[in-house]
Amino acid sequence: MARSAPHDAKPDGDRRAPKRPKLAVWKFSSCDGCQLSLLDCEDELLAVAEAVEIAYFLEATRARIRGPYDVSLVEGSITTPDDIRRIQKIRGQSRLLVTIGACATAGGIQALRNFARIHDFVTAVYPTPHYIETLATSTPIHDYVPVDLELRGCPIDKHQLLELLSALLNGRAPVLPTHAVCVECKMRGVPCVAVAKGAPCLGPVTQAGCGALCPAVGRACYGCFGPQESPNCSALAATLKAGGLERRQIAHAFRSFNAGAEAFRRESEVHD
């Protein structure tokens, strides 16, 4: 894997980003929601723009600065042959490549196609299907190129994005815990909705990062941050079943934004 050296990287392999590192934001198959999380950093946006040189970010500016880039944020999944060529080129131009969001890290909601036949979709949707050049699957970026860091979520959490940028700028490891959502839920003091209301909460198998957004408003986590570090999906599925969920509902619970994430995919297939 050839990686271009940043223009002023320290020779001793210091991973600290240089002064005003060049940041690029790339889009593959996705809804743009994760990119918008960056624009959503309203209070911090000026500080971000001061700290990094935004070299490529079509959602924000038409200006394009040529690579190489110190940091590439990549949104979206790989769904076409052209995507594969493009991500390889981006990897070659990027010192650090960070995937952002469920599409880039797990294939996104469009990975539902992986469980069906692509031909059926293409012929159902397009009047002239032979114009469509697409892959049979929607898959994460890390299936094609090495990825340095992942930000999970559909969409990502802006605090995690700022934490990542701040860590890179200051030469420290970002704080991105991989434990369950339940940790954040208990830190917030939310009474567990699974226990108190019998809600089908996926928090115990889902990675933290959202701040337990859904349980905090009284509803079940639906797993948009993907599997936690050691997900016991079969144990949770058994409890969902005991709580009255049908087979199909259990399959659907694991088959949403992170349908393509290994642990969720396997569990959804068990109940398919």
Partner: peptide
Amino acid sequence: TTLDGATATRWRRWDSCFAVG
């Protein structure tokens, strides 16, 4: 840290022996 590196803060937060980390 703040983005400009002018402030660094150390926090303590609850953890659990059930977390792999």
